[in-house]
Every structure is written in structure tokens, then in C-alpha cells.
């Protein structure tokens, strides 16, 4: 069978809604695309732990500190599940860690921004996890089967995180004027980044991952679902949105933001790894990676003796 024949058979499988396993034949572009996508997801889970970790000292009680710790632990756990799935596509975990700390691979835009106070913990836990859940739930039907199996567990835990995030948001919403300000202030700083989170409008003709059904929905479909789900909830708590201000579109029956109101420049900078906190967060990651080198070496030594 020539490469072209195999590619044709593969495309037919995808077209029929078949799922691809790690040991199946797949085109090089499919393998590389899925690997890059899952690696970026894994990087984001591990980098996402850092801004939340920064919020820990401002937790208003020991109980909230412990529950946020448990949530961060889940996020790091997600990165471990995802790196394992990515490894089966042919890149070692060592290489993925090295590429991350040396700025050769990417992580999600929202983790490139600073945190200021406990209001950020509420906002990240509710709206950023909410945005992530919209994306992740849309991937549950991805054509790459091993990814969907770990996403099942990840989504279940993210549901809990969403609850946790909404809970601390509501505590602030029901609190003093200053506590209400804390959430509003976080929303003002994070809103544009959340809109960016879903990415610019998808181009289905160019996007191989959409064509191969690795991704099942376009960026704008996901952004719309997020706005429909969360904008009314935020408004009914009495909070307001900064630019780009969402509006209800009577003709479509959906919440939307005007494309011309979105300033994409900050996202472009982040894509070059030049976000406000990129360098500092990667430095943190590198330090953790170096500090833990002895653990990896000790385990490798034990494996040598067991063999």
C-alpha cells in the first residue's frame, strides 16, 4: 500500500466517525498535530498550577487554602495524564519538559497573566475553569481515542473545580463591598484574556485538526457557548463587564462580543512567549524542574536495579 492509499483509507475512517488508537497507522501530520495539541494541553495544566499557587497565601481560611491546594493537585495530575498520552505519540516526557522550560512549546494564554488577590482565585476557578471545560467537553468526541479516555476523568474533576470556583465567587458576591470589588477587579483584568482563550475565528479549510475531527467545534462556537452560559450568571450577581462588553444578539439568540472590539495584540505577544508573566512563570517551572532532578535520577536508578 502506498502512503497515498493509506492516507485515503485513514480519511475514510475519520469521515465514518471511526476513532484512532495510538497503535493505528496515522498520517505524519495527524500524529504531529495531535501531539502538539495534547502537549500544549498538558503544558497548560502544569503551568496553570503556578498562578493558582500564587493565590494560596491570600486564602481567607485554612479550609479554603486546603480546598484550593486539592484543586491545584488535580491540575498537576491532569498534566501527568496528558503527558503520558502525548508520550505514546513519540515524544519523550523529558523532551516535552525541556521544550516547555526553554520556551520552545506553548501553554494557554490565561496562564501568562499576573494574579493580585483572592478575587483572582475566584475568577480563575469559576470563569477560566468554565472556559476550559467548554473546550475540554467539546474534545470528548475527538477522533484520537486515548485523548478522549483521559478527558473523561479530567472533565469530571473540572466539574468539581467549577463548583469550587463558583462557591468562592458567591462568597465574595455575598460579602462586603470590598469583597465584591475583589471579584469585579479580577473580572476587569481577566475578561479580555478569557475572550482570547478560545482563539481567533477558526478557518476550517486550513485547520487540519478540525478536518480530522481531533477538534470537533470551531473557536467561535466555543466562545459563544461560554458567553451564553456565563454572561447571564455574572450579570445577575450585579457585576459588570469591561471591553469587549458582551451583548445579547436578538437575531441569533446568543450572547456575543463585537469582533472589532477585541484587541488581539496581547494574544499575539503571548504566542511569542512575551506575555506579562511568561518569563517569570517559565523560570519558576525551570526551577521546580531542576530542584526535582534528584527525584527523577533516584527513580531511574531504582528502575535499573529492578530490571
Amino acid at each position: 500500500m502506498t502512503y497515498e492509499d493509506r492516507l485515503e483509507a485513514f480519511n475514510a475512517r475519520i469521515e465514518a466517525g471511526d476513532k484512532i488508537e495510538a497503535e493505528d497507522w496515522m498520517p505524519d501530520d495527524y500524529r504531529a498535530g495531535v501531539l502538539k495539541f495534547i502537549e500544549m494541553h498538558a503544558n497548560s495544566e502544569i503551568m496553570g498550577a503556578i498562578p493558582e499557587r500564587e493565590c494560596l497565601p491570600s486564602a481567607p481560611s485554612l479550609q479554603r487554602k486546603m480546598s484550593l491546594c486539592a484543586k491545584i493537585q488535580d491540575e498537576v495530575g491532569h498534566s501527568q495524564l496528558l503527558y503520558r498520552v502525548a508520550e505514546d505519540l513519540g515524544k519523550s516526557r523529558e523532551a516535552m519538559y525541556e521544550d516547555l522550560v526553554n520556551g520552545r512549546s506553548k501553554f494557554h494564554n490565561v496562564f501568562h497573566y499576573p494574579t493580585r488577590h483572592w478575587g483572582d482565585a475566584a475568577l480563575i476557578g469559576w470563569l477560566i475553569d468554565g472556559a476550559a471545560l467548554v473546550t475540554q467537553a467539546s474534545l470528548l468526541d475527538s477522533s484520537y481515542a486515548p485523548y478522549t479516555r483521559v478527558l473523561k476523568r479530567i472533565c469530571a474533576e473540572e466539574q468539581l473545580h467549577l463548583r469550587h470556583g463558583e462557591y468562592i465567587t458567591l462568597e465574595l458576591a455575598l460579602g462586603t463591598e470590598h469583597q465584591r470589588w475583589m471579584f469585579q477587579d479580577a473580572l476587569n483584568r481577566w475578561w479580555l484574556a478569557i475572550i482570547h482563550f478560545f482563539g481567533p475565528r477558526s478557518n476550517p479549510d486550513k485547520d487540519l485538526l478540525l478536518r480530522w475531527k481531533v477538534k470537533t467545534r470551531t473557536n467561535e462556537q466555543q466562545r459563544e457557548e461560554f458567553l451564553d452560559r456565563y454572561v447571564p450568571k455574572v450579570l445577575e450577581l450585579g457585576f459588570t463587564f469591561p471591553d469587549p462588553v458582551p451583548y445579547y444578539d436578538d437575531t441569533t439568540g446568543h450572547w456575543a462580543v463585537r469582533e472589532e472590539d477585541i484587541d488581539w495584540a496581547p494574544l499575539e505577544a503571548i504566542k511569542r512567549n512575551e506575555g506579562p508573566e511568561t518569563a517569570r512563570r517559565l523560570e519558576w517551572r525551570r526551577r521546580i524542574y531542576e530542584d526535582h532532578r534528584w527525584v527523577r535520577e533516584t527513580l531511574a536508578e531504582a528502575a535499573l536495579h529492578a530490571a
Binding site: 463558583e166 458567591l170 462568597e171 458576591a173 455575598l174 445577575e236 450577581l237
Partner: peptide, 8 residues
Amino acid sequence: LRKRARER
């Protein structure tokens, strides 16, 4: 909590 926050 949601209900209370909405009322408030």
C-alpha cells in the same frame, strides 16, 4: 448561595 447573591 446563588439565590441569595441574586436577591442581593
